[in-house]
Amino acid sequence: MARKPPEPVQVVKQRRDAALKALVEGVPYIGFLGIGFDRRGDELTAIMPFREMLIGNPMLPALHGGATAAFLEVTAIIELAWTSMWEDIETGRIDSAAIDARHLPRLPKTIDFTVDYLRSGLPRDAYARARVNRSGRRYASVHVEAWQDNRSRLYAQATGHFLMPTRPDASG
């Protein structure tokens, strides 16, 4: 039997980008902080462009620790939701044409979150990537790293535990 021809690249990209956009734009607080996501395949990088409203110490000046904590937590939640959606996006179980915030799976809920502040946040753009270390049916453990100018010089990192949403198809 002949193999199904691969989908055109722009169809694949359009589907993935639409799903990511719906996921991110559904959360008001992500827009409030001005956080965006860059996607390469399934890899996400969160970007928090510098804005005056992120400042917590005007003397240094430095980013507010709370803004950094929020940036890390947003990155962790989106990565976790994205990872768990991936199969559904690829197999077409999530219809990218009809996708909007209403039709997305529910977001994971934070159980606890520990932020480690390594350097003071400079008044410039920040980047973050999260790694799902364990994702079970109910609980997940995620590690996040954030940096500014150099990928190898982290300015903050965090570990969090999350409660996974109950899937509508999984009864009981």
Binding site: Y29, H64, G65, G66, A67, A70, F71, E73, F113, V115
Partner: peptide
């Protein structure tokens, strides 16, 4: 519900 990040910022401050 308010984002955990905003609660973090409040607790940190």
């Amino acid at each position: 519900v308010i984002h955990g990040g905003a609660v973090s910022a409040l607790m940190d401050t």
